[in-house]
């Protein structure tokens, strides 16, 4: 079977043209159509730029934006409805006894909320947990940028946050003034870890020696 390109280089009207004429026709067509396109681009050279200089400029989020949860512990009756509605089972609730909402003050009383945590490594921000809540205590917030260094840090303990009077997790940039101090401690931790004697799997040399020993034993 002989291979020929199916995408032909000329066709239709151009079949009747002489090769020389076709060559110049192609050049003319290319230049003229590119000029049409360039005119459109030129128009936008003088228009206002639409690019947002993130992260220097924060994006304007819509009011319904589905970001990290906003949780009001005093209203929560720990009924588990949000955890049951969650498709990925990322909400963990623990309590000491039944809680009940006081209609007048709007504060739940009874047992103690020992844990309300959301694993954001699993959460897909579908907002299905918001719909069934009978006391309207969980909402989707407007924080969208948060990061962690390991999987454990992706689990946000809302009960711990509530002790500090917070209802939503705080990303690092919100606590910017503490950043240098935090970075210094982290660097110190890493240096200590790297210089320590029990480096475990991080010690390549020791691993190589151990592997050599194992190979020698087998041989």
């Amino acid at each position: 079977m002989r291979a020929t390109p199916t995408g032909s280089f000329s066709g239709g009207k151009m079949n009747q043209m002489s090769p020389v004429r076709e060559y110049f026709h192609n050049i003319w067509q290319t230049v003229s159509t590119i000029l049409i396109g360039m005119r459109i681009s030129l128009k936008y050279c003088f228009a206002k730029t639409v690019t947002l200089q993130y992260p220097d400029v924060a994006p304007a989020l819509q009011p319904r934006y589905r970001g990290f949860h906003f949780y009001e512990i005093e209203k929560c009756i720990a009924c588990d409805l949000c955890a049951k509605a969650c498709p990925v089972d990322c909400i963990y609730i623990e309590k000491t006894g039944p809680r009940k909402l006081d209609k007048v003050s709007g504060i739940a009383a009874g047992g103690l909320m020992t844990r309300y945590a959301i694993d954001y490594a699993k959460c897909m921000f579908c907002a299905l947990c918001v719909d069934p809540c009978p006391t309207d205590c969980i909402h989707m917030g407007n924080i969208h940028d948060m990061s962690g260094f390991n999987r454990e840090s992706m689990i946000v303990e809302f009960t711990e946050l509530a002790k500090d009077g917070l209802q939503t997790p705080q990303p690092l940039w919100m606590t910017k003034e503490k950043l240098p101090e935090w970075a210094a401690t982290r660097k110190k931790e890493w240096t200590e870890f790297a210089n320590s004697n029990d480096k475990m799997s991080h010690d390549r040399e020791a691993r190589r020696v151990a592997m050599g020993d194992a190979l020698a034993d087998n041989a």
């Binding site: 819509q62 009011p63 319904r64 934006y65 589905r66 907002a127 989707m140």
Partner: peptide
């Protein structure tokens, strides 16, 4: 985003 709060995974 204004209608449902998400930009890609709407539900």
């Amino acid at each position: 985003e204004a209608a449902c709060g998400a930009r890609l995974t709407y539900s």
